Every structure is written in C-alpha cells, then in structure tokens.
Amino acid sequence: MDFYSIVENFSHPATLFFFLGLIAVLVKSDLEIPPQIAKFLSIYLLFDIGIKGGEELFHSGFDSQVIVVMLVCIIGSFLIPFLMFFILKQKLSIYDAGAVAATYGSISAVTFATASAFLESQGVEFGGYMVAGMALMESPAIIAGLILIRLYVRKEDQTIAHQESGFKHILKESFFNGSVLLLVGSLLIGYISGETGEKELKPFVNEIFFGMLSLYMLDMGLLAGRRLKELRRTGAFIVLFALIFPPIVGLIGIALSFGLSYSVGDAVLQTVLLASASYIAVPAAMRISVPKANMSILLPMSLGITFTFNITIGIPMYYFIIQSLWT
C-alpha cells in the first residue's frame, strides 16, 4: 500500500466532519455545537477510550510490554517539556516557554481516538494498555513545566510559590483533573468488570463510537477554525514550532518504538502520544498556576496547528513509515 492510498483511506467521516467545521468558520456559518453537548461528547470519548482500554487490558493482562509502555509514556511526557523549553525560551518569556513546553509534553485524547479509529479502519490491532500509557502522560508534563518555570524565574518574580493556586494545588489538579480521573476510572472499571462489563456496555461503547467521534470532530473543526484566526497576532516562530514539532518528535517516537520491538499498531499510537499536544487539561492547569503566561498562544498552537496536522497528515504519515520499517 503506498502513501497516497493511505491518505485516501484516512478520509473517513470523522476527519471529513472536522473539515466541515473548518469550512463553516471560513464561510461564517452559524453552525455550532451547543457547549453542553460538546462537553457530553468529550465525556463520552474519554469514557469510551478508558473502557475499551480496560477491557483490552483485562484480556492481555500485565506483562513486560505493558510495563515498558507505561515507563516510556511517563518518562517521555516528563522529558519532552525540558527539551522543548530550551528551544522556546529563545523567543518566548520563561512563563510562556514553560506553559507551551508542558502543553507539548502532554497528550491529546482526541488525536489518540482518531489514530485508534484509523488503525481499526486499516485492520491493524493494537494493545489496550496504550490507553493506560495515555492516562499517565498528563501529570508529568504539567509537573515538568512548573519545575522549569520555578527554576528559571527570579525568586522575587515567582507567582506560583506557596499559593493555593501554586505548585501544591496544581499537583492535585494534575492527578485529579476531571478528564484524567474519568479516563483512569473508566480504564479501571473496564478492567475490573471484565467480560461482564464488556457484554453490558458493548452497544454504547462500540456501535455508536464513530458517530459520536464524528460529531466531536465537527466541534473541533469549528473550534480550530476560530483559533486559527488568532495566529495572525503571533509570530512566525510560534507557527513554525507548532508545525515542525509533530514530525520531529514523531520520528523519535518511531525510532523508540522500533528499538523496543513494538507492534505496528502500538508503534503508531506511541508515536501519536509523543507527537501530540494537550489543548484541554494542560492549558487549564497553566492558566491557574502561571497567571503571567500568555494563554492566547496555547490553543492556537496545539489545536489550530498541531492537532490539525496530526489528524490530516501526521497519523497516516507515521503509519506509512512504521509499516515500511516493520515489514
């Protein structure tokens, strides 16, 4: 299968609905997803991903491969902000560099869901334990970003020390954030309930997933379209970073997956996890913890550029490279 056929096969409804959202913004349509429905769709996706991961983990059990995946996810999420910070601080303030670095060390659950749907459409199997790895990647990135900011700002300028909205508070938020708690909780429920839960939740978890994902992607397209406009107020450096980050870190993820003998499906998901960026949990955490950071640049970067790149070009590109190397 060549690259062009992969891209063509990737044009499934969820991606097309994302583009529909972008087009709606460009033509100034009044199309919108009500906020409460958008929130429900977010909750459903996290629930679905967690339950499926728990069910797969129930069938596969814990072995050395599961432990390796979890360690890679935790270490990668913690180290990526350190690597990105030293690039970002050349052009951004310490506060902005730390916030952006944390955002890019974390993950996008919707990008993961889109990659999972893509693999299913290609008939490629992957381990449910990858969801467990994803659930572990939110907190380390937030912690790393805060450590970097605390290390580099002057003591008299620190606004995150010994405050309710400071380091202690954000540690709590990073571990008990609603999205993280729902994802981890659903994973545990799927694992504990086993075959009984799999049977009872099958219609809700499996059969309507792609429809829900398509509606959510429509909302993401609308949101991304609005955020893209904000990039006009940012410099070329920000745009270039958000565009170059996915393929560079993606290649690192591919090399790491190859060295650790991942399966094709697991390698694609590991690469996507490392090459994506958060646009929900981390920006919200940074907004509370680092009030001096310019929050207006986070969503346009992570959602407007990086997310859009990954679901349209990145995922099929990673799959093409991995499939070529693994065969």
Results as ranks from 00 to 15, higher is better:
residue 86 F to W: 14
residue 119 L to I: 12
residue 151 L to G: 13
residue 212 M to L: 15
residue 112 F to N: 08
residue 234 T to P: 00
residue 199 K to A: 11
residue 64 S to D: 11
residue 300 P to T: 11
residue 121 S to Q: 13
residue 258 F to C: 00
residue 176 F to E: 07
residue 186 S to H: 03
residue 163 Q to W: 05
residue 160 I to E: 06
residue 243 L to E: 05
residue 137 M to Q: 09
residue 110 V to Q: 09
residue 187 L to E: 03
residue 182 L to F: 01
residue 28 K to M: 00
residue 298 L to I: 15
residue 13 P to N: 08
residue 188 L to G: 06
residue 96 D to M: 10
residue 90 Q to A: 10
residue 121 S to I: 07
residue 320 F to D: 06
residue 10 F to Y: 03
residue 132 A to M: 07
residue 54 G to A: 10
residue 95 Y to E: 11
residue 256 L to M: 13
residue 305 I to M: 12
residue 33 I to M: 14
residue 209 F to M: 08
residue 181 L to V: 14
residue 241 F to W: 08
residue 66 V to K: 04
residue 231 L to F: 12
residue 48 D to Q: 04
residue 295 M to R: 11
residue 20 L to T: 01
residue 236 A to M: 13
residue 286 M to A: 13
residue 292 K to T: 14
residue 252 I to R: 02
residue 318 Y to N: 05
residue 306 T to A: 15
residue 125 E to Y: 14
residue 287 R to T: 11
residue 54 G to S: 04
residue 311 I to R: 02
residue 135 A to E: 03
residue 112 F to C: 03
residue 15 T to G: 04
residue 265 G to L: 05
residue 228 L to Y: 08
residue 209 F to Y: 03
residue 125 E to V: 14
residue 277 A to M: 11
residue 310 N to C: 13
residue 132 A to I: 05
residue 309 F to S: 02
residue 220 M to P: 07
residue 184 V to K: 03
residue 168 K to G: 10
residue 155 K to R: 14
residue 319 Y to G: 02
residue 181 L to N: 06
residue 20 L to A: 10
residue 279 Y to W: 13
residue 117 A to S: 08
residue 206 N to G: 07
residue 193 S to M: 08
residue 294 N to T: 14
residue 138 E to A: 06
residue 194 G to L: 06
residue 282 V to I: 15
residue 17 F to K: 01
residue 206 N to V: 15
residue 152 Y to F: 15
residue 109 A to W: 02
residue 12 H to G: 02
residue 147 I to M: 13
